[in-house]
Structures are given as C-alpha cells and as structure tokens.
C-alpha cells in the first residue's frame, strides 16, 4: 500500500492498442474500476484496460491528474471539467463517455454527458441520426406528422456542418 512505503505509488495502465501509461495511484483511483483492482491486489503489474484506446486514455489521465490536484472545492472542479471538455469534438466526447462509463468515473461521465447534450442542443435531426448511428424507421408521412406537431422546435436549428 502507498501509505506504508511513504512514497506515492505509481500504476501502469495499458490501453487496448498496447500503449503504456504511468499514473499516480491517488489519481487513478478516481476510477472505481481501477480502485477495485488495486484493492483486490490485481494492480501489481500492468493494468490492462481493454475498452479504452491510447488516445482516449491519455486524455482521461490528463483529467485524472488535473482534477485530483484540485482540493475539495466543487466550484473549482466544475470549472476545471468545463475547461477540460471545452474544445473536444463529438467523436472525442463519445470516446470519453464510453471510457468514463467503463472506468466507472461518475463525475466525468456526468460532465461528458452534459457536454454532449450541449453540443447536440441546436443540431438537426439528421445530424443526430448520423452521429448516433440511428436508422430512421419512420415512413415519410409519419415523420412529417411528428414534425408538424412540434414545428416550432425546428426554429433556430444549426445548419449541419458535421462537426
């Protein structure tokens, strides 16, 4: 245990594309998944994270280090999360939310979900179908009827640029 040695323990995480990352245990245990492994004594060697690629894992580790350096101040943590996510595009955010879900990091999960919602807010129906990979199962008549019922919600929708 870290407390016994007196020096910070470092864990090695391995992404599904075989990249290795060193991270302080105190930051890594923000992930409940990793914490459980540490507590179960499975963190001796390299921790394989089969559902996270290297690019996303690097980003998650940046977040882990950043957020754990902030003392218990919810306002500051929130503004760090906002800044951390501010320049991420939809695909990156989608990877992040999957990683946060797999790593069981509820704060990151909530923040990324809210950020994706913010990105989606003014997007068109077509954009959402493409980004979420959803097939339109309405007949043209059915779709027109649903649209007619909520016509005013189509005002102010951004034109699709697929970003």
């Amino acid at each position: 245990m870290a407390a016994e040695t007196g020096t910070p323990t470092t864990l090695t995480l391995k992404s599904n594309d075989d990249e290795l990352f060193s991270v302080a245990e105190s930051a890594a245990i923000l992930s409940v998944t990793i914490r459980n492994m540490v507590e179960d004594g499975c963190a001796g060697g390299v921790i394989p994270l089969d559902n996270v690629d290297g690019k996303t894992l690097a980003s998650v580790i940046t977040y882990m280090n950043g957020i754990s350096a902030i003392p218990a101040d919810e306002e500051k943590k929130k503004s760090y999360r906002d800044k951390f996510l501010s320049d991420k595009d939809f695909e990156t955010l989608a990877d992040m939310v999957l990683a946060a879900n797999y790593l069981n990091m509820s704060c990151l999960m909530d923040a990324v979900s809210a950020k994706i919602a913010q990105v989606m807010e003014k997007k068109s129906v077509g954009w959402v179908r493409r980004k979420f990979g959803i097939e339109n199962d309405y007949t043209p008549e059915e779709e027109a009827a649903v649209k007619e019922e909520h016509k005013w919600t189509f005002e102010g929708v951004e034109t699709d640029d697929d970003n």
């Binding site: 989608a94 999957l98 979900s113 129906v125 979420f132 959803i134 649903v146 909520h150 919600t153």
Partner: peptide, 25 residues
Amino acid sequence: LPEEIIEEILHSLPSKSLLRFKCVS
C-alpha cells in the same frame, strides 16, 4: 454509444431539443 449512455445524455437536453428529437426514430 450504448443505450444507457444515450439515455444519460438525453436527460441533460433542454425540453425544446427533446421535442425535436422525437423525430429521430
């Protein structure tokens, strides 16, 4: 994205967007 994550995201959307996204499927 799996559906439980999509559900989480939809909960964060404003009502106006949700009404529009009834057209998605």
